[in-house]
Write a protein that binds this DNA or RNA. Structure first.
Lengths: 344, 344
DNA sequence: GGGGTGGGTGAGAGCGCTCTCAAATGAAGT
DNA sequence: ACTTCATTTGAGAGCGCTCTCACCCACCCC
């Protein structure tokens, strides 16, 4: 149990104590198949006595495996820690990875300096694979990962310039954002709303762009009025500001589709501050169906995507990608479902 | 830039291309001191040409250093991601570590199974040191870290049973929780409040216990009424429930000291729901001075601790602990300051 | 010219582990 | 009794890197 003299015991020491060879100890430590039960037990005892823990640097030097996977989130901590989307997704990932006894390393990218460090980290062989989220268009990370050959699964369809990746197709898990947005807008239309605004996420993310496209599609043939479109940056404060801007430009709007629940709660705040009733004066629909949607006042009609499940799927996809033999994998797109509550 | 054939180039390959020995390449890669400029340049070119990235497993096998530090949070993701305390602390840590070019690995402990895995991870030599937060009394992690000899700095004074650690003293960063609580309660007394309730955190954490002690101390010589004490578990929902319980037990209370801003906002919700005015009917004081305090309605009087700075201090302390020679380090306790706003 | 001096370089020994391969053992088949 | 074969075990060769030494080659001093 204790550490004698600061130096940790090695395989060699265990082998000596148990009176067997290094190879045998290694076999026992790694599952013990093909070792006589009696010897197996003796080795285990020696391991316990010395408090032996394998040195993973040595191990992964030869196996070329680390048993760890990086989760890279290309957002500042403040967003990562205030958006329940990430928490849910991470929870799903953590579950799945934990079940496979794989360690999850969370890397947050804030500044450009971080990019370089993370790039180095990823291609340095610290991890067997990476899960990347919330990428913006110009992000160099996917290219870095591809260049270093690190198996990667993306959360949300990445912007993937064909020419730059030797024809390789990215692996990702996404929801059908376009369809979700379409459902939201059609629902508002069916409720008789005619001046439907949209609060988008940052349009350099495919999910935000896809939802905007869905909105436009549902509104066609009537073209969407550009005055009814505002960027809320996927944050509550952004939603608040975007709603204010929309009301300034189009005072008689009668509905708003916020492309995330967080932005919807921001919009709700602005509407309340202006004395507008929801849904009587303005109907509101969100996106995500995370905790804030149900807690909002009034509870939000929203487009549900099972975020935790998406995380789980990402992890599973990466794990399969990492397993030998399983080569023909393809992206997963989960369906979006409209959940109708009081806000519309 | 590209990876030829899937196998990454080694030092050997770079040495061959540059026409020098492995040792020289190693020297260049690690700073290049003591290498003739001309050769240095030739090596750098070879590195660039082959897209060489050092294999850190091999490196840390010999250096016994990984260049990474683990941050262990003994809370479920849901709490980690909903409490701005962690976000701020992590931000401070990230800053400091980033400046030292050290990688931050975030490990969350949710179930007991995780404990075992994390323990293995920490003692497996993946990281040079660990930063641990939010430990509860019976947590086995500190003992594991101590047993494996992993340099560790704690966020908040850990519960440290003397006998179990061979007389070694833990390194930690904490605020003066007792004094902070004392200030809060004295402030309420000075405002003429007489029935002052407290919403505590989980009492198996020293920070929660210390704040409760400070509350009691400020109230002495009059002993604190046990009916005025409720546990809010450091969450908003817990604060909401605790406030309700307190009002049920002592309807005429005229002030409440919530041991975190999050719990204070929960208390505020309950008070508002009961139609009680803050601060006219019930004065409220929080603790932390994080975003929710300033955003609350009314803005919260609270006890300020510079959380981000604490994170930075933790990282700095660990980094110094890791540096050779710097041995006589001691815990850091930062002061707490009362910030008076409208809620009291 | 002999003997320092010292910066720059390479040879080689590991770091702790896995894994192949051959040897040893013993049971079973002829 | 001799071969065959499966099952255990150990010897030893690396994995890719760092780091200690010894070495080489100016260069300088007496």
């Amino acid at each position: 149990m204790s550490v004698p003299g600061g130096t940790r015991p090695t395989l060699e020491a265990v082998a000596a104590l148990a009176g067997v060879s290094r190879a045998t100890v290694s076999r026992v430590v790694n599952g013990g198949t093909g070792v006589r039960a009696e010897i197996c037990e003796r080795v285990r005892q020696a391991v316990a006595e010395l408090g032996y823990v394998p040195n993973i640097a040595a191990r992964s030097l030869v196996t070329r495996r680390t048993g760890a996977v990086a989760v890279v989130i290309a957002e500042p901590e403040t967003r990562v820690f205030s958006d329940p989307f990430f928490a849910q997704q991470l929870r799903g990932i953590g579950r799945e990875l934990g079940a496979a006894d794989t360690q999850l390393l969370l890397l947050m990218v804030e500044s450009d300096r971080d990019h370089a460090r993370i790039g180095r980290y990823l291609s340095g062989g610290h991890v067997d694979g990476a899960l990347m989220f919330s990428l913006h268009r110009a992000d160099p990370l996917p290219a870095m990962a591809a260049a270093s050959g690190l198996p990667t699964v993306f959360g949300g369809r990445p912007d993937w310039p064909d020419e730059s990746h030797a024809g390789e197709r990215p692996l990702y898990v996404d929801t059908d954002n376009r369809d979700g947005a379409r459902q939201a807008v059609r629902h508002l239309l069916a409720r008789g709303r005619r001046r439907i605004a949209v609060i988008t996420g940052p349009l350099d993310q495919t999910s935000a762009q896809d939802r905007l496209d869905g909105y436009r599609e549902a509104l066609a043939p009537a073209a969407a009025d550009p005055l009814l479109i505002a960027d809320g940056g996927f944050t509550a404060e952004g939603g608040e500001r975007a709603m204010a801007a929309l009301l300034g430009a189009v005072p008689d709007l009668d509905a708003v589709f916020a492309c995330s629940d967080l932005m919807a709660t921001g919009a709700l705040r602005t509407l309340r501050a202006r004395g507008l009733r929801v849904p009587e004066d303005v109907a509101v629909v969100g996106y995500d169906d995370l905790a804030p949607a149900a807690w909002a006042d009034p509870p939000l009609t929203t487009v549900r995507q099972d975020v935790q499940e998406m995380g789980r799927l990402m992890a599973r996809l990466l794990l399969r990608r990492l397993a030998p033999g399983d080569e023909d994998l393809s992206p997963v797109v989960t369906p979006a479902t409209l959940i109708v509550r009081e806000s519309s």
